[in-house]
Each structure stands twice: as structure tokens, then as C-alpha cells.
Measured scan of single mutants.
Amino acid sequence: KNAAQIVDEALNQGITLFVADNRLQYETSRDNIPEELLNEWKYYRQDLIDFLQQLD
């Protein structure tokens, strides 16, 4: 998997990933985040941060 796929997957589930103060953050109206997504975000944290910062 790559960062773009993970960001896309999150968006499809109503979750927006973004970077604030060099930390990976998310916004969602969901009550909870599936644990497998959280684990994936932790595992790919630096890739996601790098990818999202390139988009800014």
C-alpha cells in the first residue's frame, strides 16, 4: 500500500487525514475509527506525513 491509497481509503470512509505541527491528524464525523485503519496510519505515519505535506 502507499500513502495515496491510505488517504483515499480514509476519505471513502468519511475521514480526512492532514498534518498539523508535523503530526498526522484526522477529522471525521464518525463515532469511531476502525482499529485496522488506526494501525495502518501508525505503521505508515511518516509516509503519510510526507505525502500530505507535498500536497500543501
Results as ranks from 00 to 15, higher is better:
K1E: 02
K1G: 03
N2Q: 10
N2M: 11
A3W: 05
A3E: 02
A3Q: 02
A3D: 01
A4Q: 13
Q5C: 07
I6R: 02
I6M: 06
I6D: 00
V7F: 11
V7H: 04
V7G: 01
D8Y: 15
D8R: 15
D8G: 11
E9V: 04
E9I: 04
A10R: 01
N12H: 13
N12Y: 10
N12I: 12
Q13H: 13
Q13C: 08
Q13W: 13
Q13R: 10
G14V: 02
G14N: 05
G14P: 01
G14E: 04
G14K: 05
I15N: 00
I15A: 03
T16D: 05
T16Q: 09
T16E: 06
L17A: 01
L17M: 05
L17Y: 02
F18G: 04
A20V: 15
A20N: 10
A20W: 12
D21Y: 07
D21Q: 07
N22R: 06
R23V: 14
L24W: 02
L24E: 01
Q25W: 15
Y26Q: 02
E27S: 15
E27Q: 13
E27R: 15
E27C: 15
E27N: 13
T28N: 04
S29C: 13
R30G: 08
R30D: 06
R30I: 08
D31S: 10
D31Q: 11
D31P: 12
D31G: 10
N32L: 09
N32K: 12
N32V: 13
N32F: 14
I33G: 01
I33S: 02
I33Q: 01
P34Q: 05
P34L: 04
P34I: 03
P34D: 06
E35C: 08
E35H: 08
E35D: 10
E36S: 12
E36A: 12
E36D: 10
E36I: 09
L37N: 03
L37R: 03
L37S: 03
L37D: 01
L38S: 05
N39M: 13
N39K: 12
E40Q: 08
E40D: 11
W41R: 00
W41A: 01
W41Q: 00
W41E: 00
K42W: 14
K42G: 08
K42M: 14
K42D: 13
Y43A: 12
Y43D: 06
Y43G: 05
Y43K: 12
Y43Q: 13
Y44C: 02
Y44W: 07
R45D: 06
Q46K: 10
Q46Y: 07
Q46R: 09
L48R: 00
L48F: 00
L48C: 00
L48H: 00
I49Y: 06
D50N: 13
D50W: 10
D50H: 10
F51H: 07
Q53G: 10
Q53V: 13
Q54M: 12
L55E: 10
L55K: 14
L55R: 15
L55V: 12
D56A: 13
D56K: 12
